[in-house]
Design a protein around this nucleic acid. Structure first.
Lengths: 217, 217
DNA sequence: CGCACGCTTGAAGCGCGTCAAAAAAGGTGG
DNA sequence: CCACCTTTTTTGACGCGCTTCAAGCGTGCG
């Protein structure tokens, strides 16, 4: 798909903006059409006007930011059913990119930020997620971070015993504040201890949910 | 004061809850009285009902969380003029404690989370802060984190050339995902390079603002 | 088929943590 | 104001977890 290595600029990663327009499923309230993005396509970049929120209909999205020397931090992943794009200012300060092919529905952002309870709730939940993330990155070991990450992903995909990781090891590493090698090694270790199985390279099965949970401290 | 070491439980850290009640400065809109907390006093704890927000009138507050084995992560500091206590749920999931003696004014949280634009804005700003924090902890070195922290503190205290740190080195360490020793060593290094001066142990003067900024990557 | 990209694995190094001890800085009571 | 104790901070020596550097392996696609 695409590399996302530190030295590649974001524009190179983005084949094209919107890829296809599906007609809205129904109605007239304000059912925006679904916009489909290819894997690796940029949804917005720092500096872009933050005029709307996005609801993920299918696929997955990553939010990230770069330091001047190319170090990357993934702030969040957003899966189907989730909403993202909240900004305190009128302009974005992060990159949003489709990880896999993804379908998004935009939600217009009120001009004066007249607040609906749902918006507030979503913003608060986003803040809470970010705070859990801080805890994880600031004080947990590599194994703990990855155990927590896998359980989180499993839960967000419906709590099935197996699920697909839409993102690469590099994405995971940049999300957890680790390197790709460490992520790979920890996966290997968890597999060796029988806590998880890797049905394929992107398909994880959690064999011992309890044991994995107890690793999260 | 109090130790905040990993093995001390939070209740031991909290001498007393409210310390004194000042009468409201005036009016009837809904000017709640200022509640004063002693240094180290607990404002709320995980599990407490989240029935209000708090506006810091004076002093400083830390928000933190503990892992089961005592590792601590400070999520945020709140200085005079700032508002905290936002929660996605109806119950708190963090500790809030006064760092120095602190005066707080509570703001009632609407029962159904009827959202005002100010609330949304505060929540969004909180989310943004948390996301910057993730970036810092996830991808920056000890020196970069502390440089960034000092500049942030300077800015939040009015941008003067010198300012007081209300928190201990341990608080800073737990905020930045470091140890107290590393914080101390980096302070020493920055002082030795002439970027900062330590007027006293808690009073920092930024001698070379530019140079410090260039360390933040 | 073969290249490219993602992933794994190994070996070596370094930044930060850990452990230990001493030096400052605050209180507190006499 | 001083002696004494506690807490905070600093400093040093050493170790470990993760990163860095460097090959190799697998897999999908042109």
């Amino acid at each position: 798909m695409q590399t996302s290595t530190a030295f590649v600029t974001e524009k190179e990663l983005a084949p094209a903006r919107p890829m296809a327009l599906h007609s809205p499923s129904a109605g007239f309230a304000r059912p925006q059409p679904i916009i489909t993005f290819n894997a690796g396509a940029e949804i917005y970049a720092p500096g872009d006007k933050a005029t709307s929120y996005y609801h993920v209909e299918f696929g997955a999205v990553r939010i990230h930011r770069l330091l001047s020397d190319g170090r990357r931090q993934v702030i969040a992943f957003h899966l189907a059913g989730e909403t993202f794009g909240f900004e305190a200012d009128r302009t974005h300060s992060f990159f949003a990119e489709a990880i896999t092919q993804a379908g998004l529905r935009t939600i217009a952002r009120p001009a004066n930020d007249e607040a609906s309870p749902e918006m507030l709730s979503l913003a608060l939940r986003g803040m809470m997620r970010a705070q859990e993330h801080i805890m994880m990155i600031g004080r947990q070991t590599a194994v703990e971070r990855i155990a927590g990450f896998l359980l989180d992903m499993a839960e967000r995909q419906g709590g099935l015993e197996h699920f697909d990781l839409p993102m690469t090891r590099l994405d995971i590493a940049d999300y957890l504040g680790l390197t790709i090698e460490t992520v790979s090694r920890v996966f290997a270790k968890l597999r060796a201890s029988g806590l998880i199985k890797l049905r394929s390279i992107r398909c994880v099965e959690i064999s011992k949910h309890e044991a994995l949970g107890s690793l999260c401290a």
